[in-house]
């Protein structure tokens, strides 16, 4: 690739104890690229994701991000205020449990509108139009715009969480097991939707999953982690069809339990 990366991760380490956390992780992520991080639970993928999304300061290493204004910033050199600003404008964070990513006490419309209001939109009518258009984009019934997420099914909550994140047209989205905990049929529909949105919006995505099927469907490139370290990286098809590392071979050949 001859383009400039959007995210550069250099020698990132965050350890809670020896082998717990992530250690010496480096990679580049390019605009529009979907990077999968796979591995069993406890392999350090979620810790890595938290560090990448400015929610957990690393022990060592640097993360550089290229902003929409084409300026390289050192993530942990930024003020907390700038970090939050990035999180709610240029980035999205999709949590495994919708409860962690939604405001359960307010309506779907307000959930979608929150980021817009936080960035200064002050027109109620426009906020509603935008919320409705996003609801139909993620295949939610717009008649339910004033219902609280508590009345939604798990799959609907997850689609609402995605809409809430994408409403500010982020450039980079972090996803933590976005289809975990959903029924298989619901999972498939959600994956379809995600793939379509990622392409349409040309999103760069870092997606953590233990499910290799999800990784194959969404990710162009994979990082395989074990005991906090990267054991193998490469194009998704390459890694899954011709795994080099013994651990990856084991992953591919076995049915994993999370």
């Amino acid at each position: 690739m001859n383009r400039e990366p959007i995210l550069q991760v250099d020698n990132l380490t965050k350890l809670y104890a020896a082998g717990k956390g992530c250690e010496e992780v480096s990679f580049d992520l390019y605009p529009g690229e979907v990077l999968g991080i796979v591995g069993e639970s406890g392999s350090g993928k979620s810790t890595l994701l938290s560090c990448l999304s400015a929610r957990l300061a690393p022990d060592q290493g640097d993360i550089h991000y290229l902003t929409r204004a084409a300026e390289w910033v050192n993530l942990y050199g930024l003020s907390e205020s700038r970090q939050r600003q990035l999180q709610r404008t240029e980035w999205g964070i999709v949590h495994q449990h919708p409860r962690d990513g939604l405001r359960m006490g307010v309506s779907a419309g307000a959930n979608i509108g929150e980021r817009l209001m936080a960035t200064g939109q002050r027109h109620y009518g426009n906020l509603r139009d935008t919320a409705q258009s996003w609801m139909s984009d993620v295949e939610l019934d717009i008649a339910r715009i004033d219902d609280k997420p508590t009345t939604y099914s798990g799959g609907m909550q997850q689609r609402l969480q995605i809409a809430r994140n994408l409403v500010t047209h982020p450039r980079l989205v972090f996803m933590d097991e976005p289809t975990g905990g959903l029924d298989v049929s619901v999972q498939a529909r959600l994956l379809d939707l995600l793939r379509q949105l990622v392409t349409e919006m040309n999103l760069a995505v870092v997606i953590v999953t233990h499910d290799l099927a999800v990784a194959r469907l969404l990710a162009q490139r994979l990082i395989v982690m074990r005991h906090g370290r990267v054991v193998e990286t490469g194009l998704t098809d390459q890694v899954l069809d011709d795994p080099q590392h013994a651990y990856t071979q084991l992953l591919v050949s076995s049915v994993l339990t999370s």
């Binding site: 307010v106 109620y124 004033d146």
Partner: peptide
């Protein structure tokens, strides 16, 4: 942003 969420909910 949360302040306007409250106002938004009222209107809704």
């Amino acid at each position: 942003g949360v302040m306007h969420i409250k106002l938004y909910e009222d209107i809704a």
